[in-house]
Structure formats: structure tokens, C-alpha cells
Simulated scan of single mutants.
Amino acid sequence: MNQPPPDSYASDPTWADLLPLPQDDGQHPLAQIAYTEEYTEAMSYLRAIMAKNEHSPRVLQVTAHIIEMNPAHYTIWLYRAKTLLALSAAGEVQLGCELEFLNDLALRHQKNYQIWNHRQTVVEAIAAAAPAEQEQLVREEKGFMNSMFERDEKNYHVWSYRQWLVRRFKAWDGELSFVAALLERDVRNNSAWNHRFFVVFGGMDAQRGPEEGEREEEGEVVEREVRFIEDAVFIAPQNASSWNYLRGVLKKAHRPLSSVESMCLVYAPLDEPDKITSSHALDLLADIYTEKTEEHGKAVKALELLAAKFDPIRANYWNYRVGLIKAAA
């Protein structure tokens, strides 16, 4: 679908009908960008073809050429998408080939947003054209994302795209086991924790469970998640991601923080400071005891331990909270 670029657009008969349009930076540009000759020529011919509002195979050729030189040029991506959709509607291109083009680019430019935004447009068009093949499409997309995660398990663009794909095609099946495997490999993967929250509660909001279409009651889900967190905290008590996830689960389920007091005390026994292994457990205990007037003394003790020993870099913040408690009293 993407023909290799010519050595020179000016000498290629395919482009002979176009008068290239150079970039207009005004008469006396203060900071003119020093583009390469290759990039300048390709952009000049693209401007000419855009001025005609042409959507033809040669648009794919020149946009692919420019994208290779500058994959973050969003205007090029937009015009390429319009051309692809027009050619696909006319039966002149197969959109599946565009995914192969994007796969190669994504592996070489892992932090590029435009690639994934364009991919979303292409996948939507493929799914609309062949509804019966959506399941296979989603399976292949997940497979490619898995290969991306093997290179970078915290790639924000890939995670965002995965959540769009799961929500768009209701592809919750298998996601919980997928993210559990990632967390087993790296319990500190904050991106995986975020995705687990999305899967667990996104699946419930969609009136179904995340695995095999089963419907779980919210109470069962919360208990399962708390057990999962307990195992993760046991492995890495000082991992902020698991404690933040715990707070999120309790908030979503409208459960009081005090429901995990005993768990926190395992990692932050206030009476035995030498055995404290988690500043996050201390912080949570401070919140739990702040909510109980009769336990304000324990809240102050937890905050003072944080300020003096377990998180002194934020001592001013912890002392500020101590002041709030004393002022309220």
C-alpha cells in the first residue's frame, strides 16, 4: 500500500502535474527551522496535493515518507487518515495493511502519541466494515500490545489505547488475568495497578464481570481485591501503588478506611516503631484515627513518626496535619 518514496519528487513523472508549494515563513523569519532538503521537498509536494484536496494512493506514499522523517507531525496523520478512509470506501486499499505499517512504526517510536490516535481511527473503520471479524481484530490488537509491553510495561500511550479498545468492544474477558500476570512480574508497576482498577470496576459498571462474562457481586469483588492487595503488600510493604489501589477500592465500594486497620497495624505497629516497615500504612492509620475523636492521640503519633523518621522529606506536611488535629481538638 505504501510505495517507497522517489529519489526526487521533481523528477518523478507521478508528481509531474503538481507545482510544489514551499513553506511560507514570511519575508524575514526570525528563527527559521533548518529542514533537510528531503523533508522540504516532500512537504512542498504534500502542500500542493492538499491544496487540491486530493485523496489518492500517492498521498499515502508522501505521507508515509514524511512520517518516517517526522512521526509526530499530527497534520500529516490527519490527512493520511482522511485519505485512507476515502480510498477504503472506494475499495482501493485494505485497512489491515495500515495496521502493519503502524506496528513497525510503534515498535520504533514507542513514545509517539499520534501513532496510537491514528490506530484508533483505523481500527474503528475496520470494525465498522467487518462487524463479524471484530473478535479476531481485538485479539490481534491485544497481542500486538502485549509485544509492546515486553519492551516497556509502562507505556502510557499503549495503556490508554488498551483501555479504549476494551471499553469500545466490551473486551473485558481475559483482562484480569492479563494484568495479574504483569503485577506478578512487577508488583510496583503502577500502570498495571491503574489498569486493574479500570478492569475490575469498569467490568462491574458494564453489568458484567471481567472474566468469562460472569456477574460478581460488589462485595465479592471488594473482598477479592483486598486479598489481592494483602498479598502484594506482603511482597513489597513500601510500594505506594498497592496502598493507593487499596484506598481507591475502599472509596469505590464506600467502605470506611477503618475496615483495613488490622492490616495496617501489621506493617505499622505504633507501639513498636522499630518494627514499622511501611510509611504508607502509617499514613493510612493516621487517616483512620483522625476520623475518630477518641483516637486522635494515635493519629498524632503516626504523623509524628512519619515526620521524624519514616518520611522526613515531607515533615512540614505531616506536622501541618498534626496542627490541624490539635486545632480541631
Rank of each mutant, 00 (worst) to 15 (best):
M1V: 08
P4A: 09
P4R: 12
P4C: 06
A10E: 09
A10P: 03
S11L: 08
S11Q: 07
T14Q: 10
D17V: 11
P20A: 05
L21Y: 13
P22W: 14
D24V: 02
G26A: 07
P29M: 00
E37M: 10
A42T: 00
M43F: 08
I49M: 04
A51H: 10
S56C: 11
S56K: 15
V59M: 13
Q61Y: 11
V62W: 05
T63G: 08
A64L: 00
I66E: 08
I67N: 04
E68C: 10
E68F: 09
P71K: 07
P71H: 11
T75R: 13
I76S: 00
R80S: 03
A81D: 01
L85T: 02
A90D: 13
G91F: 14
C97S: 12
C97N: 07
C97K: 08
E98S: 10
L99W: 00
E100F: 08
D104S: 11
A106R: 06
Q110A: 08
Q110W: 07
N112C: 03
N112S: 11
I115Q: 14
I115N: 12
V123H: 12
V123I: 05
I126P: 01
A132H: 09
A132I: 13
E135Q: 06
E140A: 09
K142Q: 05
N146C: 09
F149L: 14
E153S: 09
V158L: 08
R162H: 03
V166H: 01
R167S: 13
R168P: 05
K170E: 13
G174P: 01
S177N: 06
A181L: 06
D186H: 10
V187S: 06
R188W: 14
R188C: 01
A192G: 01
N194E: 14
H195P: 10
F198L: 06
G203R: 13
E212D: 12
G213E: 14
E214N: 07
E214R: 02
E216I: 03
E218L: 05
V222E: 05
A232Y: 01
S242W: 01
Y245C: 03
L246Y: 01
R247L: 12
L250H: 02
L250A: 15
A253V: 04
R255K: 11
R255W: 10
R255L: 12
R255A: 13
P256C: 05
S262V: 12
M263T: 10
S278N: 04
S279Y: 07
L284F: 15
L285S: 04
A286P: 02
T290H: 13
T293M: 06
T293S: 15
H296Q: 13
H296W: 15
K309R: 12
P312V: 14
A315M: 03
N316V: 05
N316F: 02
W318I: 00
Y320T: 00
R321Y: 09
I325C: 08
A327G: 09
A328T: 11
